[in-house]
């Protein structure tokens, strides 16, 4: 497969990058590691006239932690760097674990944190070559008015399958987003629209510049559980991130559970977290929380395996994630 023609722009500062994006608007696309974007371009899903490459912008590539300001990670940080970071391994284990389960080591060497967070939603009817897609009418995600997965459905239910977002959302992370002349900081959870067609609340001229996690999160225990058929490479069929904090010896102060790959966005299983809060951890309680997570999962038949099996696995993985997170706390 061949890449469509485009112009490659290589800004050397964030300011310059934002300038270029402001200038080219919808015709431009940001490229970081390119591990997702270039595949989509080869499939003819995107054909930007300009690629604005962030790789020569040193200010986007850093990991900083201090006891007060918390953790800040530059958008362009490679997943491999993030996984290898001692402070993240020690104090934000859920994050390094989730990142270490992304794809496989070669892709972690190329893939960046922001690229991962900004993944498009996926569907077996969408992530296909142009020829493949020509065999059937356009669906909602490609500008048509039908869905091949949910017959009679009225919107796109392509799955968000990123591994890292659930871990960061469970840690309560925020992201800093910049465009020419303006910055904003929003909870990471708000980056996701829940719309399969356009999953990100990000304008064409905006760049995600850093991820922030509050210092208190360093004391919480966390775990990420991922279901995939092979020991590497595969996107999650289900992913569950759990983060818990203790009150005294046996009581759960706060719990946060976030699911991935079972909806159009990472979903916070609020009820599951609420059930755990202020309680002592028992098998029964874990099962209840897992049941609540199961309730909010909405897998459909569009990313492989079968959806009812995947939904059941939300229960199993949630239990395991809570147990492991608790032990690590």
């Amino acid at each position: 497969m061949r890449l469509p023609k485009f112009e490659h722009l290589q800004p050397e500062s964030l300011e310059e990058a934002l300038e270029l994006l402001a200038e080219h608007g919808e015709q431009a696309k940001v490229i970081a590691g390119g591990t997702e974007l270039l595949v989509s371009m080869k499939h003819g899903l995107l054909a930007p006239s300009y690629l604005v490459n962030l790789k020569e912008i040193p200010e986007l590539n850093f990991i900083a932690y201090d006891g007060e300001g918390g953790l800040r990670i530059g958008a362009l940080t490679k997943l491999a760097t993030l996984i290898g970071s001692p402070v993240i391994q020690e104090s934000f284990a859920v994050l390094s674990r989730a990142a270490s389960l992304v794809a496989a080591p070669p892709l972690q060497q190329m893939g960046t944190l922001a690229g991962n967070l900004c993944l498009d939603t996926r569907c077996l009817y969408y992530n296909q070559s142009r020829f493949w897609r020509q065999a059937r009418p356009r669906c909602y995600k490609t500008g048509g008015d039908t869905c091949h997965v949910v017959k009679g459905g009225n919107r796109c239910l392509a799955a968000y399958q990123g591994d890292v977002a659930p871990a960061l959302i469970a840690l309560g992370a925020s992201v800093k987003i910049a465009k020419k002349g303006a910055d904003r900081i929003v909870p990471l959870a708000d980056l996701y629209t829940g719309k399969g067609e356009r999953p990100l609340a990000l304008q064409a001229d905006e760049v995600l510049v850093e991820v922030q996690v509050a210092a208190e999160a360093a004391r919480w225990g966390g775990d990420y559980q991922k279901l995939r058929y092979r020991g590497a490479m595969d996107f999650p069929l289900v992913g569950v991130a759990a983060v818990v904090s203790r009150d005294g010896l046996d009581t759960i102060a706060r719990a946060s559970l976030v699911l991935t790959a079972v909806s159009t966005a990472p979903i916070l299983a609020e009820e599951a977290g609420r059930l755990l809060q202020g309680q002592e951890l028992t098998d029964e309680l874990v099962a209840q929380a897992a049941g609540a997570a199961y309730e909010v999962a909405r897998p459909v038949n569009n990313i492989g395996s079968n959806p009812s099996y995947r939904r059941k696995m939300v229960r199993v993985l949630t239990k395991r994630a809570i147990r492991n997170a608790w032990v690590r706390e």
């Binding site: 496989a104 077996l124 009817y125 092979r230 590497a232 490479m233 595969d234 996107f235 492989g304």
Partner: peptide, 22 residues
């Protein structure tokens, strides 16, 4: 995976050939 006569997973990512770790 099929939908009628169309193969849904004609790629090395979605067709699961085992990896060295498996």
């Amino acid at each position: 995976y099929w939908d009628g006569g169309q193969m849904l997973n004609a790629s090395m990512l979605e067709y699961k050939v085992p990896l060295s770790v498996d």
